[in-house]
Design a protein around this nucleic acid. Sequence first.
DNA 1: TAAAATGTTCAAAAAATATTGAACATTTTT
DNA 2: AAAAATGTTCAATATTTTTTGAACATTTTA
Lengths: 193, 193
Amino acid sequence: MPPVKDAPFTKGGSLSVKKSKALRAAPGANLQTSPPSLLSPFQLESVSLFIHVFGALSLPRSIGEIYGLLFSTQEPLSLDDVQTRLQLSRGSASEGLRWLRSLGAVNQVYLPGIRKEHFTAETSLRKLASGYLRDRIDPHLENGPSRLSILESSIDPTSPAAHFEKSRVGQIAGWYKFFAKALPLVKALAGKF
Amino acid sequence: MPPVKDAPFTKGGSLSVKKSKALRAAPGANLQTSPPSLLSPFQLESVSLFIHVFGALSLPRSIGEIYGLLFSTQEPLSLDDVQTRLQLSRGSASEGLRWLRSLGAVNQVYLPGIRKEHFTAETSLRKLASGYLRDRIDPHLENGPSRLSILESSIDPTSPAAHFEKSRVGQIAGWYKFFAKALPLVKALAGKF
DNA sequence: TAAAATGTTCAAAAAATATTGAACATTTTT
DNA sequence: AAAAATGTTCAATATTTTTTGAACATTTTA
């Protein structure tokens, strides 16, 4: 049998760990070189932690940074605040914030007398989970039945493989049932945290 | 308030839908131009479906292709079979198969008298789920506690923000508890399907 | 033991995805 | 109504991830 070295393999769970420029080195290291740091140690740690968490879901780094900053900051922050403190581009900050808002992970706060929109992190697990499931998982399940029937109709009943293929279709149908049961269960449990 | 057109936005749930070369057009369209088709309609549909499913988990297309082919084929297939029928490079087929094997999504089958290794798709939801959770989710939860204590120790107790920051740490601790409860529950439920 | 068969690895190329920044649109203020 | 403030969009660029293919390693066969 050929060699099986102990896997240098990038896909060690796919999506090889993203490393890049700033905020990468030591978890609590300073941000850039120019400003000593626009973030407190707690904020820095928080940003680093959420980059990691969101990364586990294959979400872009900027999303994690933004959520991490809002999570670790008591006062609502504006787009400019986010952009400045994180040293992001305007576009990234705008789109990232919009994405988080659409998911329900970030709340808009209206501050009387202030025109700029301000944002805070949503921390209710129920809301976070249901937003994520709604936007990123449910859509795939919705067109499941239609995909399944397409698959089923691709079977040639006269072929010797037909029996096997039908059993596979049944298999997938079972999987969908599992999800139909598991998702509400998880959502309900999330409500208790 | 500035314009809010209805989101052309790439990140419409992040990871914009991957399109690329072959097997992309119509779900059941022919694979390439050269060979009329190395796959049956059922196999073609299956591959297309699993590219989609694995894509939802941000896994590379080749992984979905390989699993889809094995899933829709009764006989065990060799590395060469996979490579040929899917028109993949040797490297992709080898690494993809290895990755799926390590996850437990693909089983190795020993065929008496045949030297080449052969593979079949694992379809037990319990095995698939636990493999995925073990490889891609659990690791993130494991170093959770350590990350959490780093975060906690970054709080300056004399700062006015200390109280708020402690409550955030508590928040995250609660999330970990949720996962500690939810994961086993999901694994158990998966066992029934 | 040389040749063939089977697999793996990894550097280079290709493809996909994210980020930037400047142009554009809207609302508010002057 | 012009200027300022605030946000969004999108084409260009940068980064990351995936794929390829040929070199390499091991085992089996002749």
